[in-house]
């Protein structure tokens, strides 16, 4: 069975004089390496330079707020069910009177945690969410952590800040603000 067209027949015939001199082959090799010497480099100076993200890149999660700054999540648990890695857990709570400015729905997530060691950034939570509350940001990667205590991201690190609103993948892809 032939898998690729790159397979080469091994040639065991004795070397010709030109081949036995090695010098033409060495010169060719030197030519190839010097060409690479002047080529554009494949690597970049990472922290200073960064490569552009793909518009459908799935990075760090964000819990969106709506235009008035209310949390959209209603703690229905669909994301947790959809999550193949079982990374999401939450505790629901009822909205008290006077908290209408904070939460859009009558039920909200008092605790919302994502275990970043388990998460595989598949984006199924994003698809499952009926309230358009959770998104994977296309321009932020999940930060590195050095301690197991840091791997569970709670609401403090997930909920969107109003002064620094997150872009979702759909916004970036379609260019439409919602």
């Amino acid at each position: 069975m032939k898998l690729t067209n790159r397979a080469k027949q091994i040639d065991n015939s004795p070397m010709t004089v030109a081949e036995r001199l090695y010098i033409p082959a060495i010169a060719t090799g030197l030519g190839i390496t010097i060409k690479h010497f002047f080529k554009k480099k494949a690597t970049i100076n990472y922290p200073e330079e960064q490569r552009p993200f793909s518009s459908i890149f799935r990075g760090l999660h964000v819990l969106k707020r709506d235009e008035q700054g209310r949390e959209r999540c209603t703690a229905c648990g669909l994301c947790a069910v959809a999550c193949p890695a079982e990374a999401i857990s939450m505790t629901a709570a009822e909205r008290k009177p006077g908290e209408e400015k904070l939460y859009r729905e009558e039920k909200y997530a008092a605790v919302y945690e994502i275990n970043m060691l388990r998460c595989i950034f598949c984006g199924l939570c994003e698809e499952a969410c009926p309230k358009a509350a959770i998104f994977l940001q296309p321009d932020k990667i999940a930060p590195a952590f050095v301690d197991r205590e840091q791997v569970i991201f709670g609401k403090d690190r997930l909920v969107e800040k109003m002064d620094d609103r997150a872009t979702t993948g759909i916004q970036k892809y379609t260019g439409v603000k919602s």
């Binding site: 390496t33 010097i34 690479h36 010497f37 002047f38 080529k39 480099k41 494949a42 690597t43 970049i44 100076n45």
Partner: peptide, 13 residues
Amino acid sequence: KVAGFIQDRLGPN
């Protein structure tokens, strides 16, 4: 540095 450049890398910087 030369090794890096030949291998399409930047080398120590």
